[in-house]
C-alpha cells in the first residue's frame, strides 16, 4: 500500500493538469513516513504473529501463538479486562462529560474556574497521575482511605485488591479524561441553535423534557465523538495501567496492551505480535460497527 501511495499520484497529476494548484507530491513526505512506520509494520504483524520470532530470524508456527494466548489464563484475563476497561471508561466519560458539559455551559457561579480545573488533568503526564493516585490510593496510609475513615467508611484496598484493581485504574482514567469529554460536549451544546430552546420554552417544556428532546439528541455528534475517541483510547490503554499496577496484583489488571509489553520484555516477539493482532481485531470488531450505528442514529434525527 505504501508503494502505490508513494509512486502514483505525482506522475499522472503533473502530466494531465499541467500546473495543478493541488499537487500530488504534497502527500509524499507524510506518505513515506506513515507508510514505512505504520502501514508496513501493521501488514508485517499479520505474518510475524504466526511465527516464533527473534528480531533476526523467524520460524513459521501457524496459529500456535493465538492458541497459547487463549489457553493461558494470564493472557485471557488481559483480553477480557480490555473490554471491561474500555466499556467502563467510555461509558463514564459520556455520562459525566454530558452532565458537566451542561453544567459548564449554564450560568453558574465560578464557571471559568470550573472549566479550567476539570480540563487541567488532561494535560498532566499520565505517569505522573498514575504515581500520584498510587500513593493516594494506598490502602493503609493513603489520603483517600484516611478521608473515608474520617467519615467512618472502611476504604477498600483500591490497587491491591485483585477484584477491584482494574476498576480503580479505570476510575483514575475517568478522572484524567473527563475534561476532554466535557470540552467536546460543551462545543456540541453551544452549537445547538437557540431557536430550539425558545420553541421548547414556548411549549412549556420542563428541564427533563428539554434534556430528552433537545439537548441530548442535538448534541449527538458530540456523543458520537466522545464514544469513539474514548473507546479507541480505552482499548489500547497502557500508560496508566502500567504506571499504577503493572497489570497486578498477579495479572488481575492486565489488558492486551500490557500483555504485549510483558511478552515483548520476555523476548516472545511472536506472541507479543499475536497480542497486537488480537488487539487490532478487537478494535475493528467494536469500533467499526459502533461508529456506523452512531452515524445512523444521527441521520434519523
Amino acid at each position: 500500500m505504501a508503494t502505490t501511495l508513494r509512486a502514483a499520484p505525482p506522475a499522472p497529476a503533473r502530466r494531465r493538469r499541467g500546473r495543478s494548484p493541488y499537487p500530488g507530491w504534497f502527500y509524499l513526505p507524510a506518505a513515506v513516513i506513515y507508510g514505512v512506520l505504520f502501514l508496513v509494520p501493521t501488514v508485517a504483524s499479520f505474518y510475524f504473529a504466526l511465527t516464533r520470532w527473534t528480531i533476526f530470524s523467524s520460524e513459521f508456527i501457524g496459529f500456535d501463538n493465538f492458541v497459547q494466548f487463549f489457553r493461558e489464563p494470564a493472557l485471557t484475563k488481559g483480553f477480557v479486562n480490555t473490554f471491561i476497561y474500555a466499556a467502563l471508561t467510555s461509558g463514564a466519560k459520556v455520562v459525566l462529560g454530558l452532565a458537566l458539559g451542561m453544567l459548564l455551559t449554564s450560568q453558574i457561579l465560578g464557571r471559568g474556574y470550573l472549566r479550567a480545573v476539570v480540563f487541567f488533568p488532561v494535560l498532566v503526564s499520565t505517569v505522573g497521575v498514575g504515581i500520584t493516585f498510587q500513593v493516594l490510593m494506598n490502602p493503609s496510609k493513603g489520603a483517600i482511605n484516611a478521608a473515608l475513615g474520617f467519615i467512618g467508611i472502611d476504604g477498600p484496598g483500591w490497587l491491591v485488591d485483585p477484584s477491584i484493581a482494574l476498576l480503580s485504574v479505570a476510575l483514575v482514567d475517568v478522572w484524567k479524561g473527563v475534561g476532554l469529554a466535557t470540552l467536546i460536549y460543551m462545543a456540541g451544546i453551544v452549537s445547538i441553535p437557540k431557536e430550539y430552546y425558545e420553541a421548547a420554552r414556548v411549549d412549556g417544556a420542563g428541564s427533563w423534557t428539554l434534556f430528552r428532546n433537545v439537548i441530548f439528541p442535538l448534541s449527538w455528534p458530540a456523543t458520537s465523538t466522545v464514544v469513539t475517541l474514548s473507546l479507541i483510547g480505552g482499548l489500547r490503554s497502557f500508560d496508566l495501567i502500567w504506571s499504577m499496577t503493572r497489570g497486578g496484583p498477579g495479572f488481575t489488571s492486565d489488558v492486551i496492551a500490557s500483555v504485549i509489553y510483558k511478552q515483548y520484555q520476555a523476548g516472545f516477539y511472536g506472541l507479543s505480535t499475536a497480542g497486537n493482532v488480537i488487539l487490532f481485531i478487537a478494535v475493528i470488531a467494536i469500533v467499526l460497527p459502533l461508529t456506523r450505528l452512531l452515524a445512523r442514529k444521527e441521520v434519523e434525527l
Binding site: F38, T42, I55, I232, R236, A257, N276, F280, V283
Partner: peptide, 18 residues
C-alpha cells in the same frame, strides 16, 4: 488510510523491526 491510522493501534514489535 487516514481513518485506519486513527483507529488501529500501532503494531509494536514489527515497528521495532522496521
Amino acid at each position: 488510510l487516514v481513518l485506519t491510522g486513527l483507529i488501529m493501534p500501532p503494531a509494536i514489535v514489527p515497528t521495532i523491526w522496521v
